[in-house]
């Protein structure tokens, strides 16, 4: 029971992380119709910038700021240099060009920082554990990630539902051309939305540093899980991204925690662990297939 509570929190934490990625990706898709594979590279860049700055200065907060800044600045530069030219193009072109960007980014990071993973530590004020219910300690840092993620979700909701920019974002998602025709500087709006997505990816990367090792290729792992989230949630829907993130985070975490144990009941321990590990990494894809059978356009389909 206690283990279950911990695993549910772990699932929520992973889900929140996925949401930070999925929100940016789905907004960019919803408004610009752009599929950006290099979103994972921005996550990696955020993680590297944060971990490296933290190693140099010893400050977690400076690292976090560096991660956000690096992902934001490089994201905007990427949009202005390359992606802007891809908005009207076929999805295939977008996939291939951003695939090229990934290859470049991975290799550039490997040349700058080497292939050895970077390690980022936790500051003392976040390293402890708190008792969520009496007798059950849970790492403070993971709770902090959950809090940050939920705050971002609330902030995004406020931004999109209650501000002028949010109104333009919503309008752009349904009638892109009309918004431009009404005199909105659509290029600026696109760059701003892309920059916001890049910042969120950088935030996710910087926050991940102390939990996982920071290494080349980390971006693609989370990118593919993020795709699953977006397909489940419905392309272009931020609400869908939130629901999909939490669902995928939970299913992945719970499958990893319980599947090997459940299989041990029916087969030898070593086989059960190996098969369980395989099946649990497949769990989210099976979930996606099931959702698509039931609702081909995802849980929260958007129009347009």
């Amino acid at each position: 029971m206690i283990l279950l509570l911990e695993q549910l929190l772990n699932g929520l934490q992973y889900g929140v992380m996925l949401f930070l990625m999925a929100a940016g990706l789905t907004l960019v898709f919803g408004i610009m119709g752009l599929i950006n594979l290099a979103h994972g590279s921005l996550y990696m860049i955020g993680a590297y910038a944060a971990a490296w700055t933290q190693q140099q200065t010893g400050s977690f907060l400076l690292g976090l700021a560096a991660g956000l800044a690096a992902a934001g600045v490089l994201g905007v530069a990427l949009e202005m240099a390359i992606l802007r030219r891809l908005y009207g193009r076929a999805h295939l072109d977008q996939v291939l060009a951003t695939f090229g960007v990934i290859l470049f980014a991975n290799e550039a990071v490997a040349m700058l920082f080497g292939r050895q993973p970077l390690m980022a530590g936790l500051p003392r004020w976040l390293a402890g554990a708190v008792e969520i219910v009496p007798g059950v300690p849970y790492p403070l840092y993971r709770l902090a990630i959950i809090a940050v993620g939920l705050a971002v979700a609330a902030g995004l909701y406020g931004l999109i539902a209650h501000t002028r920019i949010g109104m333009l974002v919503r309008a752009g998602a349904t009638h892109r051309a009309l918004v431009g025709a009404l005199g909105v500087r659509i290029g600026l709006l696109f760059t701003a939305v892309f920059g916001l997505g890049a910042l969120l990816a950088g935030l996710a990367g910087a926050l991940t540093g102390p939990l996982l090792s920071v290494q080349v290729g980390m971006g693609e792992r989370i990118l593919i899980a993020t795709f699953v989230v977006i397909v489940i949630g419905g392309l272009g829907s931020v609400r869908g991204a939130l629901a999909g993130s939490v669902l995928v985070g939970m299913v992945d975490t719970l499958a990893r925690a319980y599947l090997p144990g459940a299989l041990r009941g029916v087969m030898a321990a070593a086989d059960a662990d190996a098969l369980g590990a395989g099946l649990s990494s497949m769990a989210i894809f099976i979930l996606m297939a099931a959702v698509l059978l039931w609702r081909p356009r995802g849980l929260f389909p958007t129009h347009g």
Binding site: I35, F227, V231, S281, M282, F285, L292, P296
Partner: peptide, 18 residues
């Protein structure tokens, strides 16, 4: 094939990853 466009790209990638 229940999906089209960008979802098709993503779902084929996801199955391959599986």
């Amino acid at each position: 094939l229940r999906t089209t466009g960008i979802s098709f790209i993503m779902i084929t990638l996801a199955f391959a990853q599986m």
